[in-house]
């Protein structure tokens, strides 16, 4: 399918606050860009991404680190954005689903996700893909146990297709049943 031209474009992320702002600002690096936060330093990254930057690909599911819908990469590792106060992110590089493969490009996982038609309602999928991306970074050929250990929840029960998509992206043959 070609890109859907009817998608309403999201507002561009807010421009960085001038460093001269009176308040103490918190420097953040998200998707390769610099941002300066001068709100509550306790605000979890999840709400900063969603409500302030309007990067809504990172989803809310539980707010307590129990579902994985908000998974982002922090310095290449999977983290729950709902559990990270922005003040903990100084000097760290955050990557969200919107920039996993750079603008408009598809990560091999995103390609394999499409090929396996792995989405149900799709809500958990950005988090799943980020969790899988961190896994492949750590272990390019994960085995079943590695995939089993992905803690993200999918209410739509797409687990078998997610498993297939990860296996496809890793170009590793799916192992036999447990």
């Amino acid at each position: 399918m070609p890109d859907n031209p009817f998608r309403r474009t999201k507002p561009e992320p807010v421009p960085p606050v001038a460093a001269s702002a009176r308040e103490k600002t918190l420097p953040l690096r998200i998707n390769g860009k610099a941002f300066f936060h001068n709100g509550d330093p306790e605000m979890p990254l999840l709400w900063y991404l969603r409500d302030v930057l309007r990067l809504t690909g990172t989803k809310y599911g539980c707010g307590i680190g129990a579902c994985g819908a908000c998974t982002v990469l922090v310095d290449g590792k999977a983290e729950h954005a709902c559990m990270l106060p922005v003040k903990s992110l100084a000097q760290r590089e955050v990557t969200t689903i919107e920039d996993l493969a750079g603008k408009d490009a598809l990560h091999p996982l995103q390609e394999s996700w499409i090929a396996e038609d792995a989405i149900g309602c799709g809500y958990c999928q950005p988090g799943m893909i980020m969790a899988a991306a961190a896994l492949l970074k750590r272990k390019p050929h994960p085995d079943d146990a590695d995939i089993d250990a992905i803690p993200n929840l999918c209410r739509c029960g797409t687990y078998p297709r997610i498993r297939a998509a990860i296996a496809r992206a890793a170009s590793a043959p799916v192992e036999g049943k447990k």
């Binding site: 399918m1 890109d3 859907n4 998608r7 309403r8 999201k10 969603r50 409500d51 309007r54 990067l55 809504t56 690909g57 990172t58 989803k59 809310y60 969200t96 689903i97 919107e98 408009d104 598809l106 996982l109 995103q110 996700w113 499409i114 038609d117 989405i119 799709g122 809500y123 999928q125 950005p126 893909i129």
Partner: peptide, 27 residues
């Protein structure tokens, strides 16, 4: 036939109800 929304979903671009804002929206 594969889901027509797959590409947008995996890119995190799909706007669910929870992702929408209308101007000066208060939460």
């Amino acid at each position: 036939a594969r889901s027509v929304d797959a590409r947008e979903v995996v890119l995190g671009r799909t706007e669910y109800g929870i992702d929408s804002y209308l101007g000066n929206t208060l939460v």
